[in-house]
Design a protein around this nucleic acid. Structure first.
Ligand code: FES
Ligand code: FES
Lengths: 147, 147
DNA sequence: ATAATTAAGGACAAAAATATCCTTTATTTT
DNA sequence: AAAATAAAGGATATTTTTGTCCTTAATTAT
């Protein structure tokens, strides 16, 4: 569905959302290890998410690293996709026409558009925070401990 | 959504379904021109569809070319995807986990699985014939003429 | 100020996807 | 049988995506 780069972007952002705060930033080493991605490649992706749309925040130097502001936590997943995927699944035609549109629909369009709309809604309505919370539910972070 | 190769496979198959018969086969030149794809690359794809699963039929030599048997016309689109996409969107996890599954779900899984199921159903239930017919409806082939 | 730390950024490398070209094989027509 | 036609298949080239490495810049601690 997405490129490797986008997958890493999503996984990294979710991880950062779960584990970081303005007081506790995370290094690229830890992040890449945690989400099982190539370190330097992931670094570039985080740069992109930091520069292009301010989804991720970063600080250099000792004690520095990456974190998500609480404002960024509330942003929809689609903001990540928007930075990462030039056009992406959302705008593309199943059969590869230049553009998926009503004006020039391919023979799959009528049946596909509803599904596409659901995908768009999903990414629009799901926030980073929600994913982070869900991830915690599935694979509890060990922050809280086990009483 | 799909690779270029898969897009060409779908477009080519639909075109062949619309325009060919066992009595009137189509050459690679015509097909590639019609669907706006690189000729030799498309040739390889048709080879694959001919060899791997018998979706497309071919005959060499003068009067030869590609065509779809009426039996092949009734096959689901998913048969094309199965030949073209090693694993494909249908099996992959949104966040890039090795496998999209209930056993090891990512935080997008619960919301995504319903949409994925719809996609699978769409490709399973839509036949090549239906797409060809729909294509004719949208962009009438000039076979029938204009009254 | 100097040293240490950590992200930013540029240059480069490897792998995969896409695309082209040329030779071979099967089939038909002459 | 020979020539012509059209797909099959192998080798190679190009482009894009993915991944690595090294230097630079910012920030903090000594
Ligand atoms: S035009 Fe092809 S999916 Fe919309
Ligand atoms: S496990 Fe990620 S989408 Fe199913």
């Amino acid at each position: 569905m997405f490129s490797k780069a986008t997958e890493y972007a999503l996984r990294a952002t979710i991880y950062i959302a779960r584990k970081s705060s303005e007081e506790h930033k995370l290094g690229i080493e830890e992040i890449a290890k945690a989400i099982n991605s190539p370190k330097s490649f992931t670094a570039k992706i985080l740069q992109k998410l930091t520069a292009n749309n301010g989804i991720i925040s970063s600080v250099r130097g000792p004690g520095g690293g990456f974190y998500l502001s609480s404002k960024a936590q509330k942003r929809p997943v689609r903001d990540i996709l928007h930075v990462m995927e030039e056009d992406g699944v959302l705008g593309k035609c199943v059969l590869g026409l230049k553009k998926c549109s009503e004006a020039m629909p391919c023979p799959m369009h009528a049946e596909y558009k509803g599904i596409k709309q659901q995908l768009i809604q999903l990414f629009e309505h799901t926030t980073i925070q929600q994913l982070a919370h869900d991830a915690d539910r599935i694979i509890p972070s060990n922050k809280q401990g086990r009483h």
